[in-house]
Design a protein around this nucleic acid. Sequence first.
DNA 1: GCGTGATTACTCGGATACAAGATGTCCGAGTTTGAGCGG
DNA 2: CCGCTCAAACTCGGACATCTTGTATCCGAGTAATCACGC
Lengths: 133, 133
Amino acid sequence: MKYSKATNYALHTMLFLVAAGQSKPVGVQQLAEQQNLSPTYLSKILTKLVKAGMIESASGANGGYRLKRNWENISFLDIIHAIEGAASLFDCSLDHGPQCAIQQVVLAAEAQMEQHLRNQTMAELVQRKKIIF
Amino acid sequence: MKYSKATNYALHTMLFLVAAGQSKPVGVQQLAEQQNLSPTYLSKILTKLVKAGMIESASGANGGYRLKRNWENISFLDIIHAIEGAASLFDCSLDHGPQCAIQQVVLAAEAQMEQHLRNQTMAELVQRKKIIF
DNA sequence: GCGTGATTACTCGGATACAAGATGTCCGAGTTTGAGCGG
DNA sequence: CCGCTCAAACTCGGACATCTTGTATCCGAGTAATCACGC
């Protein structure tokens, strides 16, 4: 079990966008170069973030991606969910009784992790560390 | 990102073995029936648990799998790591600076989850709930 | 009875098949900016 | 100097190609218990 590379890329991109501010859109090319991956693939990932309402895209020359309003509240969990989906990471394969004891334990553990990811916003991270994204 | 079905099977099997006690070995056929999957596949999964030292196998007639000593301390995390591997679920794809801020956040969150999984033993769960595994 | 061999009931491990998802690439289409050009 | 056109610089989306991983099956080999049989 591992987070996908796409999540990796999305987190780094968002961190950069937050650090850059929301003044001008940043081209996908520039973003891709920094992470050393192909622009077209990055754009697919960013499309998910757009649909999740975290950023917006600007077409045409000088286009690119830009933060949307209330970007201050975007948490790690928001980004991860946008990319990976919000499904819980364990589904009991059997159907025994109303509630599987194993499932309860694992989901409780997952909730702990999500709690931590929900409390950490991108903006806060940028403030604390002086970048190195 | 999801835990694999194999993990699912392993957890359920361990819970059953703990509930059954370590007197006689339980055949893989019986274990597979309860979870409605093929015996050969289950045996592959259980082989990992054997190598992790949680259970032992007995060949020949009346053979099967049985708990090993100090099974009381086996936690959820032990089983999950035996099946999924112990690799952390996030590796920063870039190499920027000594420590990636994003990585630190995600790993801290993961640590929270693992903490919870480490504290929950199979034996405890069997005692609390009267089965339904 | 008692050993000895065959049968039966198991697990083990490797090889293989299959499906799904992650990871990328390619290309055509739409959109905005800005430069060039003619009036 | 103004407006029009056109090219350039972008993103968007769908359709692929590829690779890895999870899931599962098959089969031959080894092993232990038990049964049968001959002495």
